[in-house]
Design a protein around this nucleic acid. Structure first.
Length: 432
RNA sequence: UCCGCAGUAGCUCAACGGUAGAGCAACCGGCUGUUAACCGGUGGGUUCUAGGUUCAAAUCCUAGCUGCGGAGCCA
């Protein structure tokens, strides 16, 4: 009878028993009578020890043959060992090579970002990318769990759209049958407003595309965005949901990904400080702070250096609300207390990770929106369906968009958002 | 689109006007407890491309290509 297959993370529970481990040869160190095999299987890494005398000559030779990242099945007995980083080792009795691997491109030497990104399909096997993807998984599960618990319904938005959702930023154009054109969505928000009028609390979580020629550590051309939309909600309600959601995400990652955060050398104490309430300032207050620091001129949007200056000194995400309406989208509701301000909110992550959330309360007044569409020179016929939402039982509502990669990059302490997505799409990179 | 920086061995880099080198990887040998293993040896080059300056160019100049970082825009 063959020994049972056991995941490396579960080996401790099988101490003293024979098991099989299926995985890949991460690295090997060899002596004349001893092989040390570092085996990884996606759940962890374990060291297999192959002694010439214990395993026999045939097995010993087979253990010395597979190259780095060859796929192997290793049979052995689980043994506690104080010298092992994970607490247990495998005393190997047999090794079988499944798929060979020679001249693996990613060795133990250091590599530059260009080379690593060109080999992203292999780089994923390394510890840091694997840890990052596990954190990303937790972030997405935390989002879905939390929103489900709060009564939200997942309503997916279309990827093909007939026109710009907001009419401003650059779109990827694709041919759509004979003589039509379609565009890849840059936001599902307008569709979520329709869904919120049907189901109350809704969200979508999917890719968004921006054909901007941006080359910074905060930008991808394809990124994932969470967009909740809530009926019968105002700006304060939206800010409350953002705060609660971010705290829940951080809590889950701290609870489920401690080892991954250690692998990533993340300062966990910084994340532990992310608890309610978040600091909140109005645009006016923020502009005043910037004016004292750097001579900022009131009325403009905040640039990346401005964001960093505002976030400096805060260990929690900073919420900036009530913006001059000129710098915000046409569909934002105006502040009843000051018609020059839009009821929008941006959330700036700590440690220089920039804007991770943008949202606010939507305008519900039909005549106001018609004027806005005209003022922004948008094609009105494309927005008729959107205006219908105001013609037939409109209610106060609001929502926000959260950038998944920026959030993951912040939680993991990554130098660039491209590491927060399995296969990044950037201005000059679409391979692999 | 604009502004910087870079391109030399498979990878990471050095050489800064005067004989192209190191570490890692590969290959060979040694080692019974390694953890980025260690020790000895071998092979490995159109110095991104095209011009130019010079007795002499990886090095200086011009143009291009590629990548990186930042700005703008945004999540």
């Amino acid at each position: 009878m063959q020994a049972p297959v056991v995941a490396i993370k579960d080996l401790k529970a099988h101490e003293g028993k024979p098991v099989r481990v299926q995985g890949w040869l991460y690295a090997r160190r060899s002596g004349k009578k001893l092989h040390f095999l570092q085996i990884r299987d996606g759940t962890g890494v374990v060291q297999g020890v192959v002694g010439l005398e214990e395993a026999g000559e045939a097995v010993f030779q087979r253990a010395g043959a597979p190259g780095q990242e060859a796929s192997i099945v290793v049979t052995g007995t689980v043994r506690a060992d104080a010298r092992a980083p994970g607490g247990v080792e495998l005393s190997v009795t047999d090794v079988a090579e499944i798929g060979p691997s020679t001249d693996y491109p990613l060795g133990k030497q250091t590599h530059g970002p260009d080379f690593l990104l060109s080999n992203r399909h292999l780089w994923l096997r390394s510890r840091r990318p694997a840890a990052t993807l596990r954190v990303r998984d937790t972030v997405i599960r935390a989002i879905r769990d939390y929103l489900h618990r709060e009564g939200f319904v997942c309503v997916d938005a279309p990827i093909f759209t007939p026109n710009a959702c907001e009419g401003t930023t650059t779109l990827f154009e694709v041919p759509y049958f004979e003589d039509q054109k379609a565009y890849l969505t840059q936001s599902g928000q307008l569709y979520m407003e329709a869904a919120a009028m049907a189901l109350g609390k809704v969200y979508c979580l999917g890719p968004a595309f921006r054909a901007e020629r941006s080359k910074t550590r905060k930008h991808l051309t394809e990124f994932w965005m969470l967009e909740p939309e809530i009926a019968f909600a105002g700006l304060e309600d939206v800010m409350q949901v953002i705060e609660a959601l971010l705290c829940e995400i951080v809590r889950r990652v701290l609870a489920e990904n401690r080892d991954d955060l250690l692998t990533l050398e993340r300062d966990i104490s910084k994340l532990e400080q992310v608890v309610p309430p978040f600091p909140r300032v109005t645009y006016d207050e923020a502009a005043l702070i910037l004016k004292q620091k750097s001579g900022f001129v009131y009325g403009g949007d905040f640039g990346a250096p401005d964001e960093e200056a505002l976030a400096a000194g805060h260990s929690k995400p900073l919420m900036i609300h009530r913006w001059p309406h000129e710098v915000k989208a046409f569909y934002m509701r105006r502040d009843p207390a000051n018609e020059k301000l839009a009821l929008g909110v941006d959330v700036i992550a700590p440690e220089g990770y920039g804007e991770i959330v943008g949202g606010g309360e939507r305008a519900t007044d039909l005549a106001f929106l018609e004027r806005q569409i005209e003022a922004h020179k948008l094609p009105k016929e494309a927005f008729e369906w959107y205006l219908d939402l105001r013609r037939y039982g409109s209610v106060p509502h609001g929502g926000f968009g959260m950038g998944i990669e920026r959030t993951v990059a912040w939680l993991c302490g990554l130098p660039h958002v491209r590491e927060a997505v399995p296969f990044p799409r950037m201005l000059y990179r679409i391979y692999p």
